[in-house]
Design a protein around this nucleic acid. Structure first.
Lengths: 100, 100
DNA sequence: TCATAATATATCATTTATGATATGTGTCAA
DNA sequence: TTGACACATATCATAAATGATATATTATGA
């Protein structure tokens, strides 16, 4: 079975991802940006769940809509302070750990 | 039982912390800086466990000793990129979540 | 004690995250 | 169609993270 058909057969994101990461370039990119894409997605999900617009979330965070769009675009290298603010808005605890 | 003696009787850090956080000023400070102090501590522990000096860790991270000291002092508002680099050095996965 | 390593602190330059405004694009309901 | 809303993107200024060097302080072993 070649790579393409393996990918087509992939049943979930994890499987798809591990296949993609066999490509050195993708791997390198992922090591650097993967985490922030993941965070971006989490924030988007939290916001959607509350049926909140970017503008409203922005106000709650003390910033502006364009900043939220940037945050959710996955191009953001967040600081812990920013993540803390987001957690507070959504009444969550921010968990940051180095796990084996 | 007054506050002081409660604190003295505190058996662990969590208990001590929740007592301290009843003070509004401490609470406010903690909301802003608590997470980074926690991270600082985690990094220190990882480094100590490997019996690694700040200078050696610095080299592995592509930075310098003073920067590690700053990181471990708890005055650092880390970015996810920095945390990713640390995770990589210690062969860990960085976990960032918003938990209920 | 002394020498040396380890860590902390001060300071500066540079890069980057964030705040902010403006504007473009698409959607949807009236 | 038009107007309002939601989101994306471009750009700029500013604050802050990080890189870097020097030096002070502390810990530790000979």
């Amino acid at each position: 079975m070649n790579k393409e058909s393996k990918i087509k057969k992939a049943i979930d994101f994890q499987e798809y991802l591990s296949e993609q990461l066999k490509n050195k370039n993708i791997k390198k990119y992922y090591d650097k940006y993967g985490k922030q894409i993941e965070i971006a997605y989490q924030i988007l999900q939290l916001r959607k769940k509350e049926k909140m617009s970017q503008a409203v979330l922005a106000k709650k965070l003390g910033t502006n809509q364009s900043n939220i769009a940037r945050m959710e675009s996955g191009q953001q290298n967040f600081t812990t302070e920013t993540l803390q603010k987001v957690a507070k808005v959504f009444d969550r605890d921010l968990k940051i750990e180095f796990v084996k």
